[in-house]
């Protein structure tokens, strides 16, 4: 029987965000937007969902005088991402 895939991660944009954040210390909103090609509104909604699940932390601050949102994957997020990838392997083998 196949393992159930984490519904929070099993969505294109959220998975893309987690894939980016898994490889970096932290990333700014503008960088994630550029990498995923998502709209600001949609990306904000998905970041909120990941944050509510405890998979990422979102910090709002300023870069000079410009507002800057920085996202960072949490330990729980990293564990969930690893579990998700391991579950995927069972679907593919």
């Amino acid at each position: 029987m196949f393992p159930k895939l984490d519904p929070i991660l099993h969505s294109e944009l959220r998975l893309a965000v987690m894939s980016i954040l898994a490889g970096v210390d932290s990333a700014e909103f503008s960088y994630i937007k550029k990498q995923t090609g998502a709209t600001s509104g949609n990306l904000s909604v998905q970041l909120d969902k990941l944050s509510a699940a405890g998979y990422i932390s979102v910090e709002k601050g300023f870069k000079g005088k410009v507002p800057c949102t920085t996202c960072k994957i949490t330990q729980a997020g990293l564990a969930a991402f690893e579990n998700y990838v391991n579950s995927l392997k069972e679907y593919l083998i």
């Binding site: 895939l5 944009l13 959220r14 894939s19 980016i20 990498q35 995927l88």
Partner: peptide
């Protein structure tokens, strides 16, 4: 390079993970 929040197959999931990690 335009990702929406759609459902996808395991193959597509793996494709997204690989592509995003490589591009980043």
């Amino acid at each position: 390079n335009n990702i929406e929040n759609k459902e996808m197959t395991a193959q597509q999931s793996l494709g997204i993970i690989t592509e995003m990690m490589n591009n980043s």
